[in-house]
């Protein structure tokens, strides 16, 4: 019996999300008195794989095969399902990002395993197996009973603290590839954004809305983000107007994020926007309208004009950093 956690890598490196997944899997495994097996696809150095043991993986299976160069969802799912069967996995843990969203449902059908997606907490109980998850885009939560022998959980990013629980590093290398006949997608081009903090990875996010009044006014917001090592984001009207790129849109239909700190600057906080940011640990709201719904979601607020407040914040952060 095992808990199997699936890991992607980015140019041979793991990121915080990877270690959140292993930490989470390791806690779930403790509840089931079973070991955690980490499954990594693609070329990753031993020094990087070893980090997975630090967060509690009893064994790392590293699969390197040329056919894994293309993320073919059907072929990947087939290969993971095989490992799940060989390792007698009772719980599979994946990220709730696009890769996890691609694989979890296919694995569910292959393994006849119930899925709970976007979980952020440990199971409420393991017998019966009940997990707590966000529904109605954060307006409510549900306790979901998974009735099958095998369970699949996808973990929301930035929702689970890293916990070190070092195990001896045991690594099994495998060259087993996916079934080539299943590969029906061909990647022609990959465009990777570099040098920019990913919105979904960021600890701090500085986000602007219509209260910024025009795209020319973004400089102090970008400066504030730069000083804090934060990612920049925006509300839907801002991206619809083309003031900022669509990649920055946070909200129900845009990116759903859970940073430590979220600055909502000139954003009124429509339900659709809150759906994308309500899992943030701290929300700061800056808005001229004292009745704006964003203040109900925020822990800290400033009633005032974003364009007048921003330079003051920039100055205060500079002062903080100079100390």
């Amino acid at each position: 019996m095992s808990v199997l956690v699936f890991l992607e890598n980015w140019d041979g490196r793991f990121k915080k999300l990877s270690f959140e997944l292993v930490s989470y899997a390791s806690k779930v495994a403790d509840m089931l008195y079973s070991p955690v097996i980490a499954l990594s696809f693609g070329q990753v150095d031993a020094s990087e794989l070893e980090k997975l043991a630090t967060y509690g993986a009893s064994k790392v299976i590293s699969v390197e095969n040329d056919l894994l160069g293309t993320f073919d969802e059907q072929a990947f799912a087939g290969l993971i399902a095989g490992v799940a069967q060989n390792t007698d996995a009772k719980v599979l843990v994946l990220a709730n990002n696009n890769a996890g969203k691609a694989l979890a449902p296919r694995l569910s059908v292959r393994l006849k395993a119930g899925v709970a997606s976007g979980v952020s907490k440990l199971p409420v109980s393991t017998e019966p197996f009940v997990v707590y998850k966000k529904v109605y885009s954060g307006k409510a939560f549900a306790n979901i009973l998974i009735k099958t022998d095998i369970k699949i959980l996808t973990l929301a990013q930035n929702s689970f603290e890293l916990v070190e629980s070092p195990k001896p590093f045991v690594c099994e290398k495998s060259a087993a590839g996916p079934d080539g006949s299943l590969i029906k997608t061909q990647v022609k081009e990959v465009q990777i954004q570099s040098g920019k903090i990913l919105l979904t990875d960021a600890d701090i996010v500085v986000s602007g809305g219509r209260g910024m009044k025009s795209p020319e006014n973004w400089a102090p917001l970008v400066e504030l983000a730069g000083l804090l090592g934060a990612a920049t984001a925006c509300s839907r009207p801002v991206s619809d107007e083309g003031w900022r790129s669509h990649d920055e849109h946070t909200g129900q239909t845009g990116k759903i994020i859970a940073p430590n700190l979220y600055f909502a600057i000139g954003i009124s906080g429509a339900t659709q926007h809150l759906a994308g940011i309500s899992s943030s640990k701290f929300i700061v709201a800056i808005n001229t309208d004292k009745d704006a719904p964003i203040f109900e979601a925020a822990q800290y607020g400033i009633i005032g004009d974003a364009l007048k407040v921003l330079p003051k914040l920039v100055e205060a952060v500079k002062e903080m950093k100079s100390k």
Partner: peptide, 13 residues
């Protein structure tokens, strides 16, 4: 394969 046991409202901030 799954069912909702019950729903909860978010805790007030």
């Amino acid at each position: 394969l799954t069912e909702v046991v019950d729903y909860e409202m978010p805790k007030a901030r």
